[in-house]
Computed example of a mutant assay.
Amino acid sequence: MPNQAAEKTVGFRALAAVLVPFLSSIAKIEFTDPQKLPTTGAFVLSPNHYSNIDPVIMGWSIWKLGRAPRFLAKASLFRVPVVGAVLRGTGQIPVERAGSVRGSEPLKAANELVEKGNAVIIYPEGTLTRDPQIWPMRGKTGAVRMALEQNLPIIPAAHWGTQAVMARYSNKISLFPRKTIKVAFGDPVDLSEFRGKPINSALLTAATELVMADITALLEVLRGETAPVERWNPAAHNQKETGRFE
């Protein structure tokens, strides 16, 4: 059985000693069903994404609940002085291109993730949502691929309020007044119909849509609104605007 206390490495604790007091001064978190975040064992956490500060807020959220967050990070960042040391010291996962879980390094890290019983946060949208109303857009398949290949549960999550701390596409933090951020966790996404089958594009796309549906349902509750029936598709929108795919 992995030692869960080992999740919070010296590097993590040093980083938290700096970040947590600052974050607590500018925002507070209100949890919905925090008990749905697994207290032990490896899992993939998949939240919505609409602000550049989302990873910090989501990492802080699961830290408050006793877990230590891991993220996929560009491999090039691991070669940057100081930044690389922080990433390695906190067990982040290197990838050669943003959002990808293909390749030997992510696979090695994923195996270690399972062995050590750690959690990894993967944003299925891959980038900030392009939906005009900040609803989750069509997801990419990286989170589901890791969950299926490593036989991990995938936990949907949603948050609302980070846009008041840092607006979409902005890098400016709003310090005052102190903001309230709502965070919700869901039950593990039911991927039973996909497990044990050959992994291909169609299977990953269908499984990813289940994940995005669960994330959207959580966000609907937090916002007190109903999401559009049709999920925003950046590729289709780009084709409509330019007449071609990119």
Rank of each mutant, 00 (worst) to 15 (best):
Q150I: 03
S25V: 08
N171S: 10
W232R: 05
D190M: 04
P47R: 04
R70L: 09
K8W: 13
I57G: 06
G89D: 11
L65Q: 03
V211K: 04
W135K: 01
E246N: 11
V189G: 00
R130V: 05
H49K: 00
V221F: 07
A235E: 15
A110Q: 12
L23W: 07
R79K: 15
T39H: 11
I181W: 00
I173P: 01
I53W: 08
R244D: 10
I26Q: 00
D214P: 07
K197S: 08
R88Y: 12
N233H: 13
S192D: 13
V80D: 10
Q35R: 08
A98M: 09
V120E: 05
H159L: 15
M137L: 08
P153D: 01
R195K: 15
A217L: 08
T32F: 12
G142H: 00
A73T: 13
L23P: 06
S100V: 01
G66S: 08
S46L: 03
T205A: 13
A167E: 14
E193R: 12
L152I: 10
P177Y: 00
E149P: 01
A202T: 14
P69I: 12
Q239W: 10
E241H: 09
A157Y: 01
E30A: 13
I181M: 02
W60S: 00
I93Y: 03
R97A: 02
I122G: 02
V229D: 15
N118Q: 13
L72M: 10
L204V: 01
G196P: 11
R244C: 09
G59A: 08
A14C: 14
A27S: 04
T180W: 01
T162Y: 03
S201L: 12
Y50A: 14
L77W: 09
T9S: 08
M146Q: 07
P234C: 13
I181R: 01
L175D: 01
P69Y: 10
R13Q: 15
P136C: 06
R102D: 15
G243I: 03
M137W: 01
N171T: 11
Q92H: 14
L175P: 02
L45I: 08
A184L: 00
D54E: 05
P136E: 02
G66W: 04
K36S: 07
P21G: 02
